[in-house]
Nucleic acid binder design. Structure first.
Length: 544
DNA sequence: CGATTTTGACCTGCGC
DNA sequence: GCGCAGGTCAAAATCG
């Protein structure tokens, strides 16, 4: 009937249009019926019903619109409040911090919301500004590694000069080093090294490289110190000529069956469906990492998140002193970039101990200590089949089988989140509200999930019309508390647009459509969020 | 013959 | 300043 539009307001508009067209159609039908004597009465009655239904639909849509707007406003309020509180709490604000705006909700997967040039290039992306932050999985969504820090982009945009590759590729790909190598007088690089996130993926793989769906060309190889038997290979994305994405591939010194692939950069071209799985996953990781690093200066980075379990992910940050103590001997020689490591190996290695198994020459340097995410599910997953040598050789996946559907990243993810919640939970609900607000305000992936739910309910409200013309309630049941709920087998409504453009990592939370039309998003947080005309809003629930 | 890989040289940043 | 290590370039070699 009606597709779920990326833009929530767009979805509403579409629903309106839908309802109107239905009603017009029915009215036209009735006019024909009126012409026949024997059908006059029934036609009039039918017309009345249709009009009634039309009115109901309109009211429903208005209600949903109002709900959505108030919800959005309150959501922003909370986030801004949180951001300002955070800013004042940190006290010593550097000049760099001052240039940063309060953190806003960004639902873009790996896209920088403050990239005017990108938006100009992608004309369709340049939609209403007020909806920008809720622009989820729109047509212009680039699934890739958004490695560029907002802060650095801001600074770069202030400068009149931009590296040419930025214009060509939509990404300041050349590292501070290479930029300087080619543009010796580039001040941006000198003043503010680009905080480009790297996403390192550890996975068991027998083949020389992981098949991540993209096309790569090897442009170099180096024997890395500490692992002479496993030279590091450098690859460049060749899907598009100017694509700035590169990756490094190296075998783990301790376990040769483990392949460490480090991605860097953002694809500036549409990705093959088969490539979106890895791209969106790494993008989510990078976004999360950058969301953290953008709010804490490198020098204080380790204190910000060190040793925390955040949003269910084991964050292991290391400060320079620890690196110098010999725990990570090669970190000192590592580059400037923050690195997040996704451990997709089968070992249950969420404990901090596994971090020491990381090849130190892949991990980041002391300026941007590594973040490690263990996505090892206790259940068998098909990750190796997708990203490893078991990947289908045709390189594509059927549209109706989004690759991420099967990425069972959720179990441990949820467990960690739940455990962390339980660990940190103060007896009061106030603590819960604070915890949740903090998580929401700092974790883009969770923001995205919530916004996705909000977005989807706008589309679902009227898509649940049954044949009898009845409209099921638009109630959104964001059941974040039911961690035992069955994992849905249905396809995620968010990825049913047939375009394969939606970030698959929403499926981390095993979203599903409940029979009554509510969108169920599983998460270990033991509370539920409902959105309907009668149910309190998400923020209400948080505040309660 | 074009695309890809190999490989040595070169550049840069960092630590001493 | 020097040496080391990471990263990139580009010519030569190889492959399909």
């Amino acid at each position: 009937m009606s597709k779920i539009a990326a833009n929530p307001s767009g979805a509403v508009m579409e629903e309106k249009k839908d309802a109107a067209s239905i009603s017009h159609h029915e009215e036209g039908f009735c006019v024909q019926e009126v012409g026949k004597d024997d059908g006059l009465k029934s036609a009039i009655a039918e017309m009345g019903e249709v009009k009634e239904e039309n009115e109901r639909l309109k009211m429903m849509l208005e209600r949903v619109e109002k709900d959505y707007q108030s919800l959005q406003l309150r959501f922003f309020d909370i986030l801004q409040k949180e951001a300002s509180e955070k800013g004042s709490a940190e006290g010593s604000v550097t000049s760099l911090d001052e240039t940063e705006e309060p953190e806003m909700v960004s639902l873009r997967l790996g896209r920088n919301p403050r990239e005017p040039k990108k938006d100009e290039r992608n004309g369709t992306c340049n939609k209403a500004k007020e909806n920008e932050d809720f622009e989820l999985a729109s047509n212009c969504l680039t699934l890739g590694l958004d490695a560029t820090c907002q802060l650095s982009m801001e600074l770069a945009s202030e400068s009149s000069e931009e590296p040419k590759e930025t214009e060509a590729g939509g990404e300041t790909w050349p590292t501070s080093k290479s930029v300087k190598a080619r543009n010796g007088d580039d001040e941006i690089s000198d003043q503010m090294p680009t905080k480009r996130a790297r996403v390192s993926v550890r996975a068991r793989c027998d083949t020389p490289t992981m098949n991540d769906g993209c096309q790569w060309r090897k442009y170099g190889q180096k024997i890395a110190k500490g692992n002479p038997s496993c030279p590091r290979a450098y690859y460049r994305c060749t899907v598009a000529p100017a694509c700035p994405v590169r990756k490094q591939v190296q075998r783990c010194a301790e376990d040769m069956s483990i392949l460490i692939t480090t991605y860097e950069g953002t694809h500036n071209h549409p990705l093959p469906v088969s490539a979106t799985a890895m791209a969106s996953t790494t993008s989510a990781a990078a976004s999360m990492l950058l969301s953290d690093s953008s709010t804490s200066q490198p020098s204080t980075h380790s204190s910000a998140l060190s040793g925390t379990v955040f949003n269910g992910l084991s964050f292991s940050h290391f400060d320079q002193s620890r690196a110098k103590q010999g725990l990570f001997p090669n970190h000192a020689a590592s580059p400037l970039f923050p690195t997040i490591t996704l451990d997709l190996t089968s070992a249950s290695s969420s404990s901090p101990a596994h971090v020491t198994r990381l090849p130190s020459n892949i991990a980041s340097g002391p300026r941007y200590p590594p973040t490690n995410l263990s996505f090892c599910s206790k259940e068998p997953t098909i990750i190796p089949a997708v990203w490893g040598n078991g990947f289908p050789n045709n390189g594509t996946l059927a549209m109706d089988k989004p690759p991420m559907r099967s990425l069972n990243l959720g179990n441990q993810f949820q467990e960690h989140f739940y455990q962390q919640y339980m660990k940190n939970q103060a007896p009061s609900r106030d603590a819960l509200a604070k915890t949740l607000t903090k998580v929401i305000s700092t974790d883009p992936s969770l923001r995205s999930v919530i916004a996705a739910a909000v977005t989807s309910v706008m589309g679902q409200g009227s898509s649940n019309r049954n044949h009898g013309g009845e409209v099921s309630g638009p109630g959104l049941s964001l059941s974040l508390g039911n961690q035992h709920a069955a994992i849905a087998s249905k396809a995620n409504p968010m990825i049913q647009n047939g375009k394969g453009m939606l970030p698959g990592y929403f499926n981390w939370l095993s979203s599903s459509s409940s029979p009554n039309g509510g969108l169920m998003l599983q998460s270990p947080l033991p509370f539920s969020v409902s959105k309907s005309s009668t149910a309190p809003s998400i923020i209400d629930q948080i505040n309660h």
